[in-house]
């Protein structure tokens, strides 16, 4: 088993942290995992992405050209990864930040209004966790419970009071994506 995931958005949207949470969840359940950021002279407001590879064997390349799974938290990321996604793959799109629908019909595009859902929960910074929850609907190798445990185990103590809302964000994202899957033609 090997799955590659790219998480992309603006700097400040929690792209890198979202990927780390996924990497922790994979590690804690005994899988091999790599997390690699796009690094460069980047800053808040610029683009950021990270690649997470999860496998049950020694991982080769930590980078992937055509990922089967991706999260696009903004329009530039949607434009970029819609074209790069592997055929048959799943792209989670933050609907709150895009103004167009998908162009490809050989991939699954799951639209999730991450910002609105996060604001309903009461903290717009949780939008990355909403997207992560949605991603899990297409990643059976990592469960919602695994990610919750990873957050609990690795979040710094000073942030522990934020756990319940993070769990809620994950769950809401997951449930929203499930509904989208149910709507999609088989």
């Amino acid at each position: 088993m090997q799955k590659e995931i790219i998480i992309a958005g603006f700097g400040g949207q929690g792209v890198l942290f979202g990927g780390q949470v996924l990497a922790y969840a994979a590690m804690d359940t005994g899988k091999d995992v790599t997390w690699i950021p796009s690094y460069g002279p980047e800053m808040r407001g610029g683009t950021a992405n990270c690649t997470v590879v999860i496998a049950d064997h020694e991982i080769g390349s930590p980078l992937v050209k055509n990922p089967p799974l991706a999260i696009a938290l903004n329009l530039p990321s949607f434009d970029k990864y819609e074209s790069q996604l592997a055929a048959g793959g799943t792209l989670i799109v933050n609907q709150s930040m895009v103004d167009r629908s998908a162009q490809r019909n050989d991939i699954h595009v799951i639209m999730v209004p991450c910002n609105e859902i996060a604001e309903e929960i009461g903290d717009k910074k949780l939008m990355n966790m909403v997207a992560m929850g949605a991603l899990l609907s297409a990643l059976p190798e990592v469960s919602l419970k695994d990610v919750e445990k990873a957050l609990e185990g690795h979040l710094p103590a000073r942030h522990k009071h934020l756990l319940p809302k993070n769990y809620e964000a994950l769950k809401r994202g997951f449930e929203h994506a499930q509904k989208e899957w149910d709507k999609a033609p088989a």
């Binding site: 990497a23 995992v33 790599t34 690699i36």
Partner: peptide, 10 residues
């Protein structure tokens, strides 16, 4: 190389 310097692994 920079990739190994920047990447995270268990």
């Amino acid at each position: 190389d920079g990739a190994i310097g920047q990447m995270m692994e268990p």
